[in-house]
């Protein structure tokens, strides 16, 4: 899922400062699951902003709404009849959501309340980690299902680098060295010989594309 983190309130406050009528719009999908942009978070943020405005003696009208999904037109459509009533939309969607809403309502002011962070795995309750960077050219099959692009600080295909110590990464002593994980796992499988191979440079064009990447499936069209 896409993870996000609420921006510091100070930053949000600054963004919404010029506006009198604000709709806080959550998203019921990914960001709801990582507890940053669902209905609850919308309630909390709206409440905090209202209180903040009162404390500063400003009159602001802040309403709440959570869409099932902020990156799909059919759900965004719920805003159609409302959007004119507000000066700004404060979106708790991921970047895709914010942009999707903005694209549909080009006249409206759409502000992001979240920092979209990464494709996350829910490691345990309250802990999300990044294991995939969507490079578009998955090689997990040869790396014992540990992604060196994401999980090695240097993205080495032929690691580990000389900084790996006690199974930890040189860049962060709390992060396991991805290559240690790969080696250990291959060792257990008796596949260490896979490491003898030199992996050629990656094809980053699949990640970077020519601007935004697209997937187009004709069979999925209506």
């Amino acid at each position: 899922m896409i993870t996000g983190e609420r921006k510091p309130l100070s930053e949000i406050k600054e963004m919404v400062a010029p506006f009198k009528k604000i709709l806080v719009v959550g998203c019921g999908t990914c960001v709801a699951e990582c507890a940053s942009g669902g209905e609850k978070e919308v309630g909390l943020l709206a409440s905090a902003l209202r209180m903040d405005a009162r404390m500063e003696g400003r009159k602001v009208d802040i309403k709440e709404l959570t869409l099932d999904r902020q990156c799909v037109f059919e759900f965004i459509d719920q805003l159609t009849d409302l959007i004119d009533q507000y000066d700004a939309i404060l979106s708790l969607g991921c970047g895709a959501g914010v942009q999707a809403v903005a694209e549909i309502f080009p006249e409206a002011v759409i502000l992001p309340a979240l920092n979209t962070t990464f494709i996350g795995e829910t490691k345990e309750a309250g802990l999300w980690i990044e294991n995939c960077r969507a490079c578009g050219d998955c090689k997990l099959g040869v790396f014992a299902a540990v992604c060196p692009i994401t999980r090695c600080a240097k993205g080495l295909f032929n690691g580990p680098c000389g900084g790996s110590k006690d199974g930890k990464c040189e860049a962060d002593a709390n992060t396991p060295c991805a290559w240690q994980l790969i080696i250990d796992r291959l060792d257990k499988r008796g596949q260490l010989d896979l490491l003898q191979k030199i992996y050629p440079p990656a094809d980053w064009s699949r990640q970077q594309g020519k601007g935004p990447r697209k997937i187009h499936r004709e069979d999925q069209e209506i």
Binding site: P8, L9, S10, L44, A48, M51, D52, M55
Partner: peptide, 11 residues
């Protein structure tokens, strides 16, 4: 958690 949130708005 809520304490943290209200502290952010200066309460």
């Amino acid at each position: 958690y809520t304490q943290g949130l209200i502290e952010e708005i200066g309460l």
